[in-house]
Design a binder for these strands. Structure first.
Lengths: 100, 100
DNA sequence: CGTAAGGTTCGAGAATCATCGAACTATCGG
DNA sequence: CCGATAGTTCGATGATTCTCGAACCTTACG
């Protein structure tokens, strides 16, 4: 599967990594936007719209490697989804409090 | 009041700063220990017991400046307290989920 | 095919953060 | 007063992290 990026298993997700990923205003804004449902990366404008795409990609990488979001190929786009089920199972109440 | 360190007001506490402060394993361990009640700094051994005191003091500084703990002089010691009331008021459910 | 759209990866420089020894401050006990 | 105790602050070094351009990789579309 070319284009597939590595994602941690649910059991591999570390609370400290999640907290770190969410500790940046831009990444937190992205996460909040994804709480309303999956989104194409191109449609995700939680931040400065003329943010360089490499920077935006890096934000997504941090969130993905922490286990906060999934980033899966979808045609020539990327589908971003919040891993709410995994995070709710591992850290009940965390997302609810942070996304408020 | 010599020895008094600056603490943010409740209204100044930023969620991202709190998340960052808690995103380190040592700082998270300290926070969890303080969830059981205030503690003298000398009695707080959440971490490596032969951790240099300057490093330990730095951890406390990050937690204090984020608004997670209070650090107040108490004789020649320091009394550490979790700011549970402020954090619960600002971010309901956050501490409960993180301290679990 | 060729080309463009949508993103990732790489590499470099800047900025931030961690770690710890050494010096300093303040307080209590004798 | 003196020394010991408890901790902060300073300064330096090393490690992460951020930012962004440039190059690269796929997929869709004509």
């Amino acid at each position: 599967m070319p284009g597939d990026l590595p994602h941690p298993e649910r059991s591999e997700i570390q609370l400290t990594d999640v907290l770190f990923a969410l500790s940046d205003p831009e990444r937190l804004a992205i996460t909040r936007q994804l709480a309303d449902g999956p989104l194409d990366m191109a449609a995700c404008h939680a931040t400065d719209p003329n943010l360089p795409k490499s920077t935006k990609s890096h934000f997504m990488k941090v969130l993905r490697e922490a286990g906060v979001i999934r980033n899966e190929p979808n045609g020539r786009r990327r589908m971003l989804t919040l891993r709410r089920d995994d995070l709710d199972a591992l850290f009940p109440g965390l997302l609810d409090s942070v996304l408020r």
